[in-house]
Design a protein around this nucleic acid. Structure first.
Lengths: 244, 244
DNA sequence: CGGAATGTTGATATGCCTCAACTAAAGTGG
DNA sequence: CCACTTTAGTTGAGGCATATCAACATTCCG
């Protein structure tokens, strides 16, 4: 397993520039490492956590449960992501956090973070920036789930996951891990399982992807992006990635 | 027209606690005031603004334009809101900002803000908190637009708009301004104009609302909330509001 | 007065949902 | 090791909610 502070530094470096003093301060943050099995809840909706979660390994997701019992997944997070920097200045969780695969996470106390941000504003700005990129991803999800038919919607979703994995070095040349089953996929895109299945088959039939056992292979990146109207600008990376 | 800094102070006070020194620092921020006519673009998608926008009067919206030409509205903002605190640490606008009604806005330079945040971290935290609440609203919009049928979806949208207006003193006992036409409503909820019309008629027919000329009257708050599965927790106000 | 923007309604088409059955793969316990 | 159950994926059929098309009503504004 990679060292916690390492994961964090590397991730922030993708988006922000920190001097060596700031980096040292970051490295001195103390994290408690915990693991969760696939499917487990990490933070429950309605709770009031005093710690923040950093993903070290695996994939975690935010979701909400509706009165009908249906779940709606909101976003997915991989190593280096900080899914509840979102909750730093917020009292009560308006959603839950769960493990999509077996995961390792680092926990750091909110008050320790707040002290660090007061002492080193640039670090606070870097983390703030992370939360703003998160928000940009939410906005894009609103657009994708509200305004695209199912097949482009799935295409866009896959493009985003792959591109983000690539950006932090977690993707192979043309493949990455997306450990969702088709039921969860439906609850992500706001469609039924059957429609999720048919959308996935449609992309496979057109030879744009292969997707088995939680591993996505992209067969035609160019066309997949075009079909999904995917344009990575909203991810606000410092530079375009090479995608084969 | 209300004084710019006044609007800002009052809004932050709804969510955060600032001491008198911080308040003084905030009051000293200098804003350039500008007005826009209904329908005008305030910031274009793809631009790289060096100023931040504070809404002083009227309603502004974020939206994206799809390749098909269809617009998807993402969020709406009223006096006191800071719609692009979201873009403070972000280079390029991934969406546009437009005026839904005639509006007045205050502009403040990014670098002035950043200096203020370095000098007075609590102010930065308060604004950060604002952006996190914005993000919470985005999350809820994902859930609403992805997982609710059209009539509850509209109900939820109206509940949110009214509740937010109420929270900052911009709503009458049981009514507030929602200056959208039915075309824009459709582009907000991800449905066609016709369906938007029928959803609005359905709520009217059930005597839950009246909605004319951009003014929404709520006839039965209780039932509207229940129908829309609206629970205001995600707005993260310090206390529940009295809603008659 | 005429034209544009907006709201309303009906008819038809269609994309997606639900229901249901079946296959395949992966545990699990005797 | 094999029978059994569970989980996940796949496919077809029929129904329903929403989109599209089209016409008309209403209001606003020049």
């Amino acid at each position: 397993m990679r060292a916690v502070n390492d994961v964090l530094l590397k991730k922030l470096a993708v988006h922000s520039v920190l001097d060596s003093e700031d980096q040292a301060a970051l490295a001195s943050l103390s994290f408690a490492v915990r693991t969760f099995a696939r499917g487990a809840d990490i933070i429950k909706q309605g709770s009031d956590p005093d710690v923040s979660v950093l993903v070290i390994e695996g994939m975690v997701a935010r979701y909400q449960t509706l009165n009908s019992g249906r779940r709606q997944y909101i976003s997915f997070h991989i190593a280096g992501d900080w899914p509840d920097a979102q909750t730093l200045f917020i009292d009560k969780m308006d959603h839950a956090l769960c493990a999509m695969s077996d995961v390792a996470i680092g926990l750091v106390r909110h008050d320790a973070l707040q002290q660090l941000f007061e002492a080193k504003p640039p670090i606070g700005f870097a983390v703030w920036r992370e939360t703003l990129i998160d928000a940009a991803i939410f906005r894009q999800t609103i657009v994708n789930n509200s305004a695209q038919p199912t097949v482009p919607r799935l295409a866009h979703f896959l493009c985003e996951q792959f591109y983000r994995a690539k950006a932090v070095g977690l993707a192979a040349a043309m493949s990455c891990q997306i450990p969702l089953n088709q039921n969860q996929l439906g609850e992500t895109l706001g469609i039924s399982v059957v429609t999720a299945n048919r959308a996935a088959r449609a992309l496979t039939a057109r030879r744009l992807i292969r997707w088995q056992n939680g591993v996505l292979h992209i067969e035609n990146w160019e066309r997949l992006c075009r079909l999904g109207n995917f344009n990575p600008g909203y991810l606000h990376l410092k530079r375009r990635l090479r995608t084969g």
